Simulated scan of single mutants.
Amino acid sequence: MTLRRETRMGYVYDHLHLRSRDAVAAARFYGEVLGARETGREGGESPSRIILDLGGMRMFIEQAPEGTGPAAVPPNRGIEHIGLRVEDIEATVADLAARGIPLVSGITDVRPGLRIAFFEGPDGVRIEILQRG
């Protein structure tokens, strides 16, 4: 008879790590468009990593070395997108459009109480905005 040992580890979210062709420009996008706040830099004048806080989510944006392959094209396996909740999806979509940020898909009513839309961030990162209510 084999006893199965149950493990209950205490996992806690720590960060999301992105690689970018231009870490400085990507960090600027997340700050200017999504309100992320820079909390640190590593690597001196040409940073190798920029650390942001995006709505309580810590993001590391690393300068990708030359020769790093492109991002996967959704739909794909692995991490497919970042989801950000907003209070007013119509106002958010209008704000993004006014900033010249193209939507990948317009507002969709998934089910009662859930509306979503997608746009593309730097380096092919797909970003979902969603309104629950």
Rank of each mutant, 00 (worst) to 15 (best):
D22I: 09
R28F: 05
T92K: 12
V24G: 07
I61W: 03
D95T: 14
G67E: 01
T92V: 06
D95K: 13
L96M: 04
R21M: 05
P112E: 14
D53H: 13
S46W: 05
I89C: 00
G43T: 06
L84W: 03
R49F: 09
T68K: 13
S46K: 14
D109A: 15
E62T: 14
V110F: 08
E66L: 12
V24N: 01
P70E: 13
S48D: 05
A72P: 13
E90S: 09
M59W: 13
G106R: 00
D109K: 12
A91Q: 15
A98Y: 03
Q63K: 09
D22K: 11
Y30K: 06
E120N: 01
P102W: 01
L114Y: 10
T108N: 06
A27G: 02
A36D: 00
G44N: 08
R115P: 00
V93M: 00
E42S: 11
Q63P: 10
G69K: 05
I61Q: 05
V73P: 03
R58M: 15
A72Q: 15
E45V: 14
R37H: 13
E62L: 13
I50Y: 09
I89A: 01
A27T: 02
I101N: 12
R21S: 11
V110G: 01
P65V: 09
E45A: 15
R41K: 10
G69E: 02
A25I: 00
F60E: 15
I50M: 12
E87W: 08
A23P: 07
G35K: 03
E120H: 04
S105H: 12
V104Y: 05
V110H: 08
R111T: 03
G43Q: 07
T108Y: 05
P74N: 08
H81M: 11
V93W: 01
A23T: 06
I107C: 08
E42M: 15
R111Y: 07
L84A: 05
A72N: 15
I79A: 10
L103F: 05
F118I: 01
R77F: 14
I61K: 02
E87Y: 06
Q63W: 12
G44V: 13
P112R: 11
P75G: 11
A98G: 14
R58Q: 15
V86C: 11
E120I: 02
I79G: 10
G121H: 12
